[in-house]
Simulated scan of single mutants.
Amino acid sequence: MADITPLASGSNDRPVVQPRQDAPILLFGDGRDWHGKSLGRAFKARGISPITVPLGACGFDTTKSHGLAIPGLGDELPAAAFVRFVPGGSFEQVTMYLGVLHALRDSGVMVWNDARTIEACVDKSTTSFRLAKAGLRTPRSWTTVHRDEAIEIVRRLRAEGLKAVQKPLFGAQGNGLVLVETPDDLAPDEEVNGTYYLQEFIPPALDEQFQDWRIFVCRGRVVAAMLRHGVSWITNIKQGARAKAAIPSQDLSDMALKAAACVGADYAGVDVIQSRDGGFLVLEVNSMPAWNGLQKVTKFGITEHVVDAFLDAAFAHGRAAERGEA
């Protein structure tokens, strides 16, 4: 059973449920993809069998002491939760999924990455805002719901001899990217759900050599990195890019760490590109990054490192909660 802390005398509210350190670990995902299986094996190798559950199967239930409906959890809170995947869906569905993650954090549960970070990264316009506010060099970006404003932005860039990249506001793995040279290249309104996110296109540092960095950050450290060589200007591994192991400079590492920190990420994949002036710009921060491509060019187990860091943080969080510091 969960530990229960009584409320002050005279309160009509329910007792507050506190997570126990020996409570189960939640792994949000279906557990069937490479990452889910890899994470499951790493946890089990450390004597832990996490409750693997899709966020789509979760919800709220105020008849329970913790107010949540999570299959396999029963009437107690988890010790910690690791978010591998948040499913798509209607606005209402995604709001509820993120609401469950918010509720866990509000209940004192450590969540990697928590809903605030996921919201900041899934919405590319918010990521761009956070990066710019943090003083990080990042491509100029614009977001609008008005097509005529998007057309005007493209025209201004064209007058500067530049192009734009149109990205789905909520997108991943290079899907739905469009290189925009003229207003006619803009995707139709229905394909972008009425929202235009445009990012200045950064030409490759060397002609026709399309490449960028993926730097994997975990708990304030750069864990691994690779150069992605694209067959086109889209350099995602899922789009056919080739990975090559690489060691980032200290400046590049510091940039990646600052980028992850400005969105509050416990672990993240930071995408960085080099411009023709030799400088680097942060393109995106991924709060649920894939690392199977990176693992192929990395000699140690990335999953094992992530799980160890997660468990270290969870136990430290649990001890702080017991002292009333979390």
Rank of each mutant, 00 (worst) to 15 (best):
V222T: 09
P24S: 07
D266H: 14
D114G: 02
P248Q: 01
H35L: 09
A132V: 10
H229I: 08
E208P: 03
V180D: 05
A243R: 01
A224L: 04
K133P: 05
P87H: 05
F201E: 09
D207C: 00
L283W: 00
P188K: 04
A314W: 01
A42Y: 00
K296D: 14
Q209Y: 04
W142A: 05
R20M: 11
A243G: 11
D61E: 08
R242I: 15
P15Q: 02
W112H: 13
A150Q: 08
S90N: 03
E76M: 08
R147M: 13
V180T: 02
L39E: 01
A245G: 07
D308F: 00
N175I: 14
P50C: 07
G40F: 01
V282H: 04
D308P: 02
D312L: 02
C218D: 04
D22M: 08
A81S: 06
S253V: 15
G99V: 08
D33F: 05
T117S: 08
K167G: 00
M255R: 04
E92M: 08
I273K: 11
G176M: 04
L39F: 14
R158V: 06
N12V: 13
A79M: 09
V222E: 04
T52W: 03
L252N: 04
Y196I: 04
W34P: 12
A57R: 13
D251G: 10
G56F: 03
G88M: 05
T95M: 12
P6K: 07
R214D: 11
G318W: 00
R228Q: 10
I4F: 12
G88R: 07
I151F: 01
A45P: 09
V297S: 02
A45I: 05
V53Q: 06
V178T: 13
G31R: 10
V285F: 02
L227A: 01
R116H: 08
G74M: 03
I25M: 13
W233S: 09
T63W: 05
L177I: 12
T195K: 00
P6T: 07
T298Q: 00
R84M: 07
A42D: 03
D184M: 01
C121Q: 07
